[in-house]
Design a protein around this nucleic acid. Structure first.
Length: 571
RNA sequence: GCGCCUGUAGCUCAGCUGGAUAGAGCAACGGACUUCUAAUCCGUAGGCCGCAGGUUCGAAUCCUGCUAGGCGCGCCA
């Protein structure tokens, strides 16, 4: 099969350029890049190569462009090539020149846009990792959706993605959780309990208490000594919470390959091993940290402690691995965790964190560099906060106050597709204003319906064709060059752009591009649909348009699948 | 005080890592269904791209400074 037209044109131009450069230092020689001009008058493709070349050849850019055009041998689909503006070469194709793509799409089906390069580099993708001390809130949902779509995207580009959830089931938060549940259990037994400020509020604590009581009763706990009781209730509560979280994730079609427990790192001695190794490598010394900046610390006392020399590897300050009570810090466990990923064979890790963990990136990367020599690992994607509003009024999220809006509430009201799609419509760097009322609205304001409607509409036409006894021709027998209308050409260009879009989305870790793309593709389709009636008397034109519809449906479905959104056949 | 993210149309956001006249959706206004799904389409209007310098043929995009908002800065995870 011939390479895509774009590449053919590109090569033709490159050859012409190369022949101009004989005898010139080719080190700085620019390469030909074809772009899609915004203005229609500027043709189908534009090349700016004459401009950078002008400096090198010491000629005026328009003149350079002329020389190039005199040399170049374009493929036959090129109708004309003109010089415009300061020295752009604008290339115009014959109408219907690129419509072969429809056949390619039909041939490749689900695989259209995917790259089958079997180098299959494994990537460990860690996301969500919400603390098992409460249900997932809407902010977690954003990270979850972004992570899952990124995983799909990278998979489509040939990487072997291992999706992982890190359970923070160790540390004081778990003791607080256990204690909160125990207090509720006592209260449910009719005891008069006062709740300290430190205890978690929220009805789910009561639910967990009830669940434990119904399964295990009360007396067994009453008779335990306090530390055993807290430990036992802690484990049960974490389990209950994780069950809840898994359900929330399942409701938006997210599954993980692995749930990794922090506690196992402590219990298996991995954390201590790590500290010993660092001691042996001379990376730990005794020192005193300066007081924290930026906020009042009333009870700060300088304390001598053992510090990890992370500054040698790019960090701002050295970090303690042990608390004064002799237990490991969260940081110690976290680098043990990432070291564990490395030992499991992952040299490439991506973590998706909330923006509130931004200050944590350098220290983990520094630690990993010290341990493995790897640069910039894990690669961290920070997802900015979600601001909840209800009818435009800010809605404060606080797990402590028990006023947070859970993900499952929103999913129940809005539906999985709307939640997933909405979260994908913005770059992760921008904060997300999620209005509960607007998200609930099942009208045109929700772009997910616009896209899904395009798919359903295509299916409706295909059904109609079938009911009228129209047989779809096999793609290779269809004359796609008949698709010459403006709308048809725009739609073809959108279909053509899909693999390129996936490529930039994957390399730049920007899965939101898929969502933006589906909206543009849907728009191009709706416009085509409106101006080009499909079921008509002209048999060959009808077949060409039917093929266009099938190809569009295929690409819409491929893209929506990556987003985890359904492509309905009816709406 | 320091670090990271953001500032583009009334609102919510794109702008393909420097290209030609800055684009969508919503809201506003005006049109289009006896014909395949009007959850749609077509048009009009709306912009000191936060501010000021700099880099060059060319800047919303790159650099510097300022400004506004968000997040973070102990042995909390």
């Amino acid at each position: 099969m011939q390479p895509p037209l774009k590449e053919q044109i590109c090569q033709a131009l490159q050859q012409a350029v190369d022949s101009l450069l004989t005898g010139i230092d080719t080190n700085k020689a620019p390469t030909v890049v074809l772009t899609r001009p915004k203005q229609k008058e500027h043709g189908d493709y534009a090349v700016n190569i004459a401009m950078p070349l002008a400096g090198l050849l010491k000629q005026n850019p328009r003149q350079v462009a002329e020389t190039i055009l005199a040399q170049v041998q374009f493929p036959e689909q090129v109708e004309s090539a003109d010089i415009a503006g300061p020295g752009f070469i604008n290339i115009k194709l014959k109408a219907g020149g690129e419509t072969d793509i429809l056949k390619i799409i039909m041939q490749q089906g689900k695989a259209y846009g995917c790259i089958d390069n079997s180098q299959g580099e494994p990537i460990n993708l860690e996301f969500v990792s919400a603390n098992p001390t409460g249900p997932m809130h809407v902010g977690h949902g954003r990270g979850a959706v972004v992570g899952d779509s990124l995983a799909n995207l990278l998979n489509a580009r040939g990487y072997k993605v291992h999706k992982e959830y890190y359970i923070n089931d160790a540390g004081t938060q778990i003791d607080v959780l256990a204690n909160s549940v125990w207090l509720r259990m006592q209260e449910l037994q009719g005891l008069d309990i006062t709740f300290p400020d430190s205890a978690y509020p929220g009805d789910y604590i009561v639910d967990i208490a009830k669940e434990i009581l119904s399964k295990q009763g009360y007396t067994s706990f009453e008779n335990m000594d306090e530390s055993t009781r807290l430990k036992t209730i802690g484990i049960l509560s974490v389990d209950a919470n994780m069950a809840m979280i898994r359900q929330d994730l399942q409701d938006i079609d997210i599954e993980f390959d692995q749930y990794f427990s922090e506690k196992t790192l402590h219990e298996s001695g991995k954390v201590l091993e790590l500290i010993e190794k660092l001691e042996a490598d001379g990376l730990i010394y005794t020192g005193t940290l300066p007081p924290p900046k930026g906020k009042e610390v009333s009870d700060y006392k300088p304390v001598e402690q053992r510090l990890f020399r992370t500054t040698d590897f790019g960090d701002d300050v050295d970090r303690p691995l042990m608390k004064q009570d002799g237990t490991a810090t969260y940081f110690a466990a976290d680098i043990a965790y990432h070291a564990n990923k490395y030992e499991r064979g992952f040299k490439h890790m991506i973590d998706i964190w909330g923006a509130d963990h931004g200050g944590y990136i350098t220290r983990v990367q520094s630690a990993m560099k010290a341990l493995t020599g790897l640069e910039k690992q894990p690669e961290v994607l920070l997802v900015q906060m979600v601001n909840l509003t209800r009818d435009g009024v800010p809605f404060k999220m606080s797990k402590r106050a028990g006023t947070f809006v859970t993900l499952s509430e929103v999913v129940k009201e809005v539906g999985k597709d709307a939640v997933r799609f909405n979260f994908m419509t913005r770059r992760i760097e921008s904060q997300f204003d999620f209005d509960l009322e607007a998200a609930k609205a099942k009208d045109a304001e929700n772009p997910v319906y616009y896209v899904q409607y395009a798919h359903a509409r295509i299916c409706a036409v295909l059904r109609k064709a079938e009911s009228e006894g129209i047989k779809l021709s096999s793609p290779d027998t269809v004359d796609t060059s008949l698709l010459t209308s403006d709308e048809a050409q725009k739609l073809v260009k959108m279909l053509l752009a899909y693999p390129e879009m996936l490529d930039t989305a994957a390399t730049r870790r920007e899965p939101y591009r898929i969502a933006t793309y589906t909206m543009q593709l849907a728009a191009a389709f709706h416009s085509f649909y409106h101006h080009n009636r499909v079921i008509i008397d002209d048999e060959s034109l009808m077949q060409a348009r039917l093929l266009m519809l099938q190809a569009t449906a295929q690409v819409l479905k491929n893209a929506l699948t990556l987003l985890g959104v359904d492509a309905p056949e009816k709406m």
